[in-house]
Design a protein around this nucleic acid. Structure first.
Lengths: 238, 238
DNA sequence: CAAAGATAGTGTACAAGTTACAATAAGCTG
DNA sequence: CAGCTTATTGTAACTTGTACACTATCTTTG
């Protein structure tokens, strides 16, 4: 079969998945990086990623890498973009499909293994030089996160199951690098009707404890279907 | 070098680019399809696409395919998503990076060639079964277009250099599958300050001719930098 | 145990933006 | 020039966004 013959002759490339894994801790946005223990870019910090297996779906590969390196499953995972400049990998052509993931940092169980000799959270602001084109991938992921949180309430994926409105506000502030006005933020977020008041309060704080809320995913799905608009604005102010 | 040796052993896959090319004509949204003249999926309609060359950048490959099949250059072209289910191609594993493109349909110069025996515009609403997973790719592209036009004035890429406000409104209506209220639409779109009144009017119409406008890209870029919000709403009404 | 310290929680007036709605204007045709 | 067709325009009611400051509640400390 001629077509089949032609097909087999086409150029083939190695391909990988790389995950930009966001977490939120102590009021700052973090991403998870591994330190490579293999050439190329040995000893450089890099995104957790690996080669895709012959019969493996792309998203499954991303989920597998995430599970193997962090012990986390069933987390928010979405395709970001594919990076494939001919010269991006030191050894030969490698196309990488980048995913981005939002996780609750408390669930993290580090499992350095494979090409990773170390795996830790890094503040997004000051990243040293990363391996390959991972600096660019992180930049694209950050941009996507900023836009994404604006029109969809994905931020909850980064918070513990029960959180205070102040924590939620700090999350938006960290991602957008702005300050938001407390009363207006609360009014807006509560008006969406996505938060359920848990009738519990913080414990162990040296001040008036805040009420705890949880994100009601069921209501979210219902509203989303009906075309509800979740837009948040980045207006500043003290 | 051990790492290098390992690298060469990893599974490699063929990979392609596929373009979802949108056009707008006679008030309806169209996409450009080719009819395949090769196995697999011979005689099926498919997205214009082809294998990426060994040293070719992904976006360059998408632009090349677009140029070869349509004669169009310097058009709006953006990566959409990568599709790589193990079973999506009949002959073996093929990863495809899908791009989506917005073109002015008047510039189209069909050049059936390669795997294409025919190349024509199709209304988006009623597509027959397409080759591979192209149906899904088109659905994703449509979804992206709908969202995209909401927050960024990309629609102008689909219109001729000079257009009327009614044409522009029809474009939004076609993409969103709603009807918009004329006065409010005009107020909103003009208030963004992106349209330059060309002080010319339509010719050859059997009624009062409409004023012609052009999209001022320079102003757009300036406003975009300063964080201006281009959000359009899909509110209906006659 | 009272005062100080810290953060939580709340309302209102003004500005800006969105929506609904209909009459006149300007060309062409017969 | 009467009739047809589409273009163009404004306003009032309503909704949403913004700016802004004081009281409440808990812990800690002297």
């Amino acid at each position: 079969m001629q077509a089949r013959k032609n097909f087999d002759d086409f150029f083939k490339s190695a391909f990988t998945v790389d995950n930009v894994i966001f977490g939120f801790d102590e009021g700052t946005l973090k991403i998870l990086l591994i330190r490579r223990n293999e050439q190329p870019f040995e000893d450089f910090w890099a995104l957790p990623g690996y080669f895709v297996q012959p019969k493996e779906d792309l998203e499954a590969a991303a989920a597998r890498v995430l599970r193997e390196m962090t012990g986390m499953e069933n987390v928010y995972l979405e395709q970001l973009r594919t990076f494939g400049s001919p010269g991006r990998h030191g050894f030969g052509r490698v196309i990488t499909v980048a995913y981005y993931s939002l996780v609750k940092i408390a669930d993290f169980r580090p499992r350095a293994a494979g090409v990773a000799q170390e795996i830790t959270w890094h503040t997004v602001d000051d990243l040293e030089a990363l391996a390959f084109d991972h600096q660019e991938i992180v930049a694209v992921a950050l941009d996507k996160l900023k836009r994404s949180i604006r029109t969809r309430p994905v931020g909850f994926e980064l918070l513990p199951p029960a959180f205070t409105l102040t924590e939620l506000q700090h999350l938006y502030e960290a991602i957008w690098e702005t300050e938001l006005e407390k009363r207006n933020f609360r009014k807006k977020i509560l008006s969406m009707g996505l938060l359920e008041d848990l009738n519990r309060t913080q414990e162990g704080v040296a001040h008036r404890p805040a009420k705890l809320y949880r994100f009601d995913e069921a209501i979210y799905r219902k509203l989303e279907e009906s075309g509800f608009n979740f837009e948040m604005k980045e207006s500043k102010s003290k």
